[in-house]
Design a binder for these strands. Structure first.
Lengths: 153, 153
DNA sequence: TCCAAATATAGGTGTCTTACATAGGTAGGA
DNA sequence: TCCTACCTATGTAAGACACCTATATTTGGA
């Protein structure tokens, strides 16, 4: 009884048709840190706000709670049980100074990553200006012979 | 004899000091596809050009060759042995039409991801305008009480 | 001529991340 | 009472990747 697992990054959905999800590894972490920097919150509530920042569909609660506990173990967030409000017990998290520092580091790294994506897309768009065949044949690019190894056929 | 493995995403390098590497999963794939769209090439040569597009240090040859063989199995690239040029035998790869289509899908997804990163950074920078303490204490954000559950303490 | 280094490809393996599954408790409405 | 929404949590396996080793060919230097 194996369910078709949704592929991690990409899958072919037809001839020449692909579904790609370029995902940042551990992207939930900076997102949670940011949300907590905006104000204390608990897991279930964080999940709601995560969905608007992550574009993936639903948030995986299991992994979210695991992440929160891991962050607390590292001293990046701190939590207290809140019994006052109605409903089930909530573990309310808030950001520590260390957590804020980690958020800063994430922001810097994400900025750099965005540049890298831009560089790739720039070269891609430069290519797009040439005509490209879309049938199943071999793509006729030029020869990459910028160092030894001629092979001009 | 365990070597300290370089952490996948982030690590603490001191009190309040973190090293973060926001990585796109499977980023080598669109990069290889782009390089092959620019011209046919072989594995070892691709590694050279990958280093300028990826910011990670050295490229892992093992994983690169595995990726190339996997791409070929899927019909996204095609290869031929080239004995003409000097040096050891080279497997020269070129992009197929399917591979070009996958590159298109990657480019679209990367564009979307860049937007998402921008959204996160926008909210982060909005936060930065407020003063934030950097000591080890609790970060004093506002209460996130936009639905039930008050807890104003 | 022998040896070392660069070129070029390839397989093995453990760890981290994560999709999917399941479970259990509280509270309110039909 | 049952159902649903809220809230937290654990188990598991697949996928991606860092690190390691092995192989063969060619080139250059001692």
């Amino acid at each position: 009884m194996r369910v078709d697992r949704q592929p991690r990054c990409r899958c072919r959905v037809g001839p020449g048709r692909f579904e790609v999800r370029a995902r940042i590894e551990r992207f939930a972490e900076p997102t949670v840190l940011l949300l907590l920097a905006e104000g204390r919150s608990h897991g279930y509530q964080l999940a709601d706000h995560l969905e608007e920042l992550l574009d993936e569909g639903r948030v995986d609660f299991g992994n979210l709670y695991r992440l929160l506990r891991a962050l607390e173990e590292e001293g990046l967030v701190a939590s207290t049980w809140s019994e006052e409000s109605p409903g089930p017990q909530k573990r309310v998290y808030e950001l520590t100074g260390e957590g804020a520092a980690l958020l800063d580091a994430w922001a810097a790294s994400l900025k750099a990553r965005r540049e890298r994506i831009g560089a790739l897309l720039g070269r891609y768009e430069a290519l797009e200006e040439r005509v490209r065949p879309r049938d199943g044949g071999i793509y006729q690019g030029s020869d990459r012979s910028d160092d030894q190894g001629g092979d001009p056929r």
